[in-house]
């Protein structure tokens, strides 16, 4: 089990290999479909983003509401491929870590390699367990999107698996068709 801190360092990224189990601590930003679409449209218009992504981490998640006394509601990963259309532009801006689940497109994998980034997987459907590793959630922007707003999460020992490493190693590369 490897321990990493977020924001991650280039040295830590180089040390991560597809299949490694990781515990992540530090902070990250949440964003899923609707927030990605908005950020992508801003970039297309030549505008700057509401969050500085250089060196940062995005977790693809839309949490359930927090019960009183909880920092955050259940918050497991959503399927990453829906963000593929928007991802290479964000990686070109310096985004270094993505956390989600499931396969990525060839374009995203090429961009991960080109930009020295890494894609980590959380266990889909383990949302109540994952929430135990989020110590604080702070709304950053796009409040009108509800669960799809961008939050900053402080995380402690969040359990993850390296899905696609900076060398192109990929735990999802296997073809299951007969």
């Amino acid at each position: 089990m490897k321990k990493i801190t977020l924001p991650i360092t280039p040295e830590q990224i180089k040390d991560l290999k597809a299949g490694d189990r990781v515990l992540a601590s530090g902070y990250l930003y949440t964003a899923r479909d609707a927030a990605h679409k908005r950020m992508y449209e801003l970039l297309q218009q030549g505008k700057s983003l509401p969050v500085e992504l250089d060196g940062q981490t995005i977790y693809y998640v839309g949490a359930a509401p927090a019960k009183p006394g909880y920092a955050v509601g259940p918050c497991g990963p959503t399927s990453s491929y829906r963000m593929d259309k928007y991802t290479p532009s964000l990686l070109d801006l310096g985004l270094k870590v993505m956390i989600g689940k499931g396969r990525r497109s060839d374009e995203v994998i090429d961009s991960i390699k080109k930009n020295g980034a890494v894609y980590l997987a959380a266990i889909g459907g383990a949302a109540a367990l994952i929430a135990k590793s989020i110590t604080k959630a702070e709304l950053i922007c796009y409040e009108d999107l509800g669960t799809e707003a961008i939050y900053r999460y402080e995380v402690h020992d969040m359990p993850l698996i390296v899905a696609i490493d900076c060398y192109g190693g990929n735990v999802y590369a296997r073809d299951f068709a007969k």
């Binding site: 497991g76 459907g125 109540a128 359990p159």
Partner: peptide, 28 residues
């Protein structure tokens, strides 16, 4: 080991959800 670990997380998760009456998955 990895498969056992993932299933173990799912079992723990489902126990936490039931004990605390919170959703199993954020996608309800």
């Amino acid at each position: 080991g990895l498969a056992k670990d993932v299933l173990g997380q799912i079992i723990d998760n489902n126990k936490i959800a039931a004990a605390e009456e919170i959703p199993i998955c954020q996608d309800t």
